[in-house]
């Protein structure tokens, strides 16, 4: 390998603001539309239906009228440390790109052993249990040539819309630039979110919004303590939400001081009673 390459130069990641997230599901639909994800007549079978981006509904579990629900939009975390799925893959069909931090998936390489699915704790990997697409309905007419439709028997997952990176780079190169500006490469879910709950960028670039957001005390990651080092971060002013981001032994979780952007207590949700 040539010395002085940009090994580890970029580290793309996202921050999802759970307070802003409306639970609308646009990110899920956008992802499916962008990435030629297959649809089937019965998609209530959540163990088998393919959703690279998936909303998990969470609740504070309190009784009426103190109940709250919220959502974790969950793409692939693009685990940074030794991605569990990558090291196990038999056919090197999934790789961590050290230049971008993106965990890729090569469908035509995958043999469908599903070891990666067993290893991923986030349920981010999906197997093609069926042949991809409804036949004879004309729906293949909206498929984009930028992303290959998958064949039966292989695993697929969120790629951080890798083709968008390629697209952005191609454009930049055409303009004789080597580096991308912030915002030139964003994922389909980021772009689609009507509440701007998702921010995407280079975590290694201190100028990028994401690298500022991840320093906030309300920012956390899912299952941080098992050490997968996800590059997807979440942000919430609500302690019960943050607490659901990981497993904690009784008494282990320390609430974050309720301070906010504007240092105003109002943007944290006060208990109903105090209000």
């Amino acid at each position: 390998m040539k010395k002085g390459n940009d090994h580890g130069k970029h580290k793309y990641g996202m921050v999802i603001d759970i307070d802003k997230c409306t639970g609308c599901g646009t990110c899920m639909v956008a992802c499916a539309a962008e990435n030629n994800v297959s649809v089937r007549a019965d998609q209530s079978d959540k163990e088998r239906t393919i959703t690279w981006m998936r909303l998990y509904k969470i609740s504070n579990g309190k009784e009426f009228p103190h109940t709250e629900v919220s959502y974790f939009p969950r793409p692939c975390m693009h685990c940074d440390h030794h991605p569990p799925c990558v090291s196990v893959c038999v056919a090197t069909a999934t790789k961590l790109d050290f230049n971008t931090g993106i965990v890729s998936q090569i469908y035509t390489r995958c043999i469908g052993c599903r070891y990666c699915q067993a290893a991923c704790p986030y349920g981010a990997r999906y197997f093609n249990w069926w042949d991809a697409f409804p036949q004879d309905k004309g729906m293949d007419r909206y498929l984009t040539p930028e992303v290959s439709p998958r064949m039966r028997g292989v695993v697929e997952k969120c790629t951080f819309c890798h083709h968008r990176l390629m697209r952005a780079k191609t454009l930049a190169y055409a303009e004789d630039r080597r580096e991308l500006e912030e915002g030139e490469y964003v994922t389909a879910c980021t772009e689609a979110c009507p509440a701007q709950a998702i921010t995407f960028g280079d975590l290694n670039n201190p100028e990028h919004e994401v690298s500022k957001l991840i320093k906030h005390p309300f920012t956390f990651r899912l299952l941080e303590r098992i050490g997968t080092e996800p590059k997807v971060y979440y942000h919430s002013s609500r302690d019960w939400v943050r607490k659901l981001g990981d497993n904690f032994l009784p008494g282990e979780y320390t609430p974050v001081v309720n301070k906010t952007w504007a240092e105003e207590e109002w943007s944290t949700k006060p208990g109903r009673d105090e209000f």
């Binding site: 609308c24 599901g25 646009t26 899920m28 639909v29 956008a30 539309a33 962008e34 649809v39 309905k137 004309g138 729906m139 007419r141 909206y142 498929l143 984009t144 040539p145 389909a188 772009e191 689609a192 979110c193 009507p194 509440a195 701007q196």
Partner: peptide, 30 residues
Amino acid sequence: IKIEGRTDYPVNPGGICPVGMGGLQLLYDE
């Protein structure tokens, strides 16, 4: 091949709703 929200439109600068996002299926699902 894809519907996206417009950033140059006053109503919804950026995003759209999931129904609008899936609109191509309403066009192409014969």
